[in-house]
C-alpha cells in the first residue's frame, strides 16, 4: 500500500511538472513582450500620460513667450521647494525659471495650482546626468529651444491636459547620447 501511494505521488508530481513545461513551452513561442531598452524604446502612446520633468507650456500668441505671470503659487505650493521664479522688473513675465529636478517628486501640485496653465509635465523619460547641477533645469531656455526646434504638430497640445506627447522620442542614438552626456536637457526629437 505504501509503495502504491509513493508511485501515485510520483506520477502526480510528474504530471504537474508536465503541465508546467507545457505552459512555459507555449509562452516560449509567443512574441517578445519586453522592450530592449538601448536598441528599442517604449512607444510614444504609452508615454503620453507619463510624468517626466516639468516644462513650460508654449505661449498663446507668441509661442516662445511663457504664460507664466510670476505669481509664485507653484513655488509656494511645491512640497520639495524645487521651483525658483524671479519676476522681471518691467513686466509680469519671469526672468528666471529654475527647476531642480533632483528635488522634484512629480506630485503635480505646481501644475494644478498654476492659474495660467504655464507649466506642464514633459514626457522625457531619458533624462539622466552624473552631476546634480546639470539637473537644475532652466525652463525658459528649454522653452526657447523647443520652440526653435519647430512648432507642435497638433493644435492645443500646449495645455497641461493635452495627451499628445511632444516630439521627444529620441532617435536611434538618443538614449545613449542622453545617458552619456552631461548636458541636462536631452536633444530634441
Amino acid at each position: 500500500m505504501k509503495m502504491l501511494s509513493a508511485i501515485w505521488d510520483n506520477l502526480k508530481g510528474l504530471y504537474s511538472l508536465l503541465v508546467g513545461m507545457c505552459i512555459t513551452g507555449r509562452y516560449f513561442f509567443q512574441p517578445l513582450k519586453t522592450v530592449h531598452f538601448p536598441r528599442d524604446v517604449v512607444e510614444p502612446e504609452n508615454l503620453a500620460s507619463y510624468r517626466g520633468p516639468l516644462e513650460l507650456a508654449r505661449g498663446k500668441t507668441d509661442e516662445s513667450k511663457t504664460r507664466c505671470i510670476s505669481c509664485q503659487m507653484c513655488a509656494k505650493g511645491c512640497p520639495g521647494n524645487c521651483i525658483t521664479v524671479v519676476k522681471s522688473k518691467e513686466g509680469k513675465n519671469p526672468v528666471t525659471w529654475l527647476y531642480d529636478f533632483t528635488l522634484c517628486c512629480l506630485c503635480g501640485a505646481c501644475v494644478e495650482v498654476c492659474p495660467t496653465a504655464a507649466i506642464q509635465f514633459s514626457h522625457r523619460l531619458y533624462l539622466v546626468s552624473t552631476s546634480r547641477e546639470a539637473l537644475v533645469l532652466d525652463l525658459l531656455k528649454d522653452l526657447e529651444e523647443r520652440v526653435a526646434a519647430g512648432p507642435l504638430p497638433a493644435a492645443g497640445a500646449g495645455t497641461p491636459d493635452a495627451k499628445k506627447p511632444e516630439a521627444r522620442m529620441p532617435d536611434a542614438g538618443g538614449p545613449q547620447k542622453a545617458a552619456g552626456g552631461s548636458a541636462a536637457p536631452d536633444p530634441e526629437g
Partner: peptide, 29 residues
C-alpha cells in the same frame, strides 16, 4: 523563477492603466 516573469507581465498592464490617470507607474500620487 519563471512565475515572476508572468506576474510582472500582468502587472505592467496595471501600471499602464494607472499611469493613464496618475502619471506614474510606481509611486502614485
Amino acid at each position: 523563477f519563471t512565475p515572476i516573469l508572468y506576474a510582472f507581465d500582468d502587472r505592467e498592464l496595471i501600471c499602464d492603466i494607472l499611469q493613464r490617470v496618475t502619471g506614474s507607474r510606481l509611486t502614485m500620487n
